[in-house]
């Protein structure tokens, strides 16, 4: 079960947030914030598992421009590392697509329909 997807700028500003449920959103945002600390210590690329809290596992990807992508699933989900890794790569590619849009100026908030479409398909996969 997918929980949330977050995209956070190099300086820690939220650029995008999608939560699987409105009631859990506050908790999700808190977890994304916690994940920031875990991101700090990591190098660029697939950061793997960042933290597990409240039965939610948060995975992360840091782009080489310092943008952080967090992807969280229910910790009791049986998650194949390959599927997690692919999900992160897919989200990274989708983010690259956004940043290559000439009308997107970092660090704007992300309002892309294409990006939302990718997030939806990744989250649907895990549900």
């Amino acid at each position: 079960m997918a929980e949330f997807v977050a995209v956070i700028s190099k300086s820690g500003e939220p650029l995008y947030f999608h939560s699987s449920s409105d009631t859990k959103r506050v908790r999700h945002e808190f977890l994304a914030l916690m994940a920031l600390d875990a991101f700090e210590a990591r190098d660029y690329g697939d950061c793997g598992l960042l933290l597990v809290h409240s039965n939610i596992a948060v995975y992360g990807f840091k782009t080489h421009t310092g943008v952080k992508i967090a992807f969280a699933i229910d910790a009791s989900t049986i998650a194949s590392p390959s599927d997690v890794s692919k999900s992160l790569k897919i989200l990274n590619r989708a983010y690259s697509g956004v940043s290559c849009n000439p009308f997107y100026v970092p660090p704007d908030k992300i309002h892309s329909a294409k990006f939302q479409g990718v997030v939806d398909s990744v989250m649907n996969y895990w549900n």
Binding site: G97, C100, N101, P102, F103, Y104, H111, S112, A113, K114
Partner: peptide
């Protein structure tokens, strides 16, 4: 048109 999403 690659990567382009037009503004609102």
């Amino acid at each position: 048109a690659d990567f382009v999403e037009l503004p609102p």
